[in-house]
């Protein structure tokens, strides 16, 4: 299956530092995104460490001996899924250990959302409130559950979705990398189809724009890098209260030639309209 992808990270309109971090390892089909937290520059340290650890572990030599098993992984999982899950456990340990060894890093942590595509198989490993979405035939489906207090309250029927979106507690996480020596990782496997679009994003996107806006943008802009850019622009137009990071991954036939030329034309128009509206 052909994969085209693009990613963007942006500091946003309010913050002065970018604690988000992402990496695309195209030859492996590996996509990793992390949103860091912690005072001073330590959120950046945590998210960078998370991404680096996952990428390093997943790109390392395949060696059964080296596969650390942190928890019981279901036998039905593919090797890639097990490896990705272990990589996230390892990232947790790296951040936790670093914070233990450096007094000034105490309290730092990070979210992680990692996707590994192998043929039609998708493995997703996730901790925190960054998200993975799948757009299939116009339907946007969130693949990950947010490990936030408000999301848990919605699941328990304490808050409605609308109340959760207005809550001041949205930044409170129940699970994040680096908070404890051990962590529970959400892992899923899915089968991908031609023309599926996968999106990984930090909460700086999903708190600023709605799911229909995300779906609409992905359908209008077929070039993954430009779609990611456009989503970041939209989040910033809505206030850009947090760092925004988006990775867009498009599967199957790639748009080329004629049609991409046509789209470039319409895109320019949209941009000039946007600029005129802003002034």
């Amino acid at each position: 299956m052909q994969i085209a992808s693009g990613g963007v990270t942006n500091v946003g309109r309010v913050r002065t530092n970018n604690e988000d971090c992402f990496q695309i390892v195209a030859p492996l089909g590996l996509f990793v995104l992390s949103d860091g937290m912690g005072g001073e520059a330590h959120g950046e340290v945590a998210s960078a460490l998370a991404v680096e650890t996952v990428v390093k572990y997943c790109s390392g030599p395949e060696d059964a001996e080296a596969t650390m098993i942190f928890s019981d992984t279901p036998a039905a999982w593919t090797e890639k899924t097990k490896r990705l899950t272990n990589a996230v456990h390892l990232a947790n340990k790296s951040i936790f250990d670093s914070a233990q060894n450096h007094q000034e890093q105490r309290g730092m942590g990070a979210t992680i959302t990692a996707a590994w595509i192998d043929g039609p198989k998708l493995s997703v490993a996730h901790v925190g409130d960054s998200r993975a979405y799948l757009l299939r035939s116009g339907n946007l489906q969130q693949l990950t559950s947010d490990h936030s207090l408000v999301a848990e309250q919605v699941r328990r029927g304490i808050l409605t979705q609308a109340e959760a979106e207005r809550s001041e507690m949205q930044s409170v996480l129940l699970r994040a990398l680096g908070a404890h020596a051990e962590i529970e990782v959400d892992t899923e496997e899915h089968t991908l189809f031609d023309r599926d679009v996968l999106v990984l994003c930090s909460d700086g996107l999903t708190r600023m724009i709605t799911e229909p806006e995300i779906a609409g943008t992905l359908q209008a802009e077929l070039d993954p890098a430009k779609a990611a850019e456009r989503l970041v622009e939209l989040a910033n137009e809505q206030g850009g209260a947090d760092n925004v990071t988006v990775i867009v991954i498009r599967l199957g036939e790639q748009p080329k030639g004629w049609f991409s030329w046509l789209r470039r034309g319409t895109r320019k128009e949209a941009e000039s309209n946007g600029a005129a509206g802003g002034k």
Binding site: M37, E168, M169, S171, V172, L173, A176
Partner: peptide, 12 residues
Amino acid sequence: SAPRINETMVLD
């Protein structure tokens, strides 16, 4: 009413 939390934090 909860205290306003801007920074992301994780609960133990």
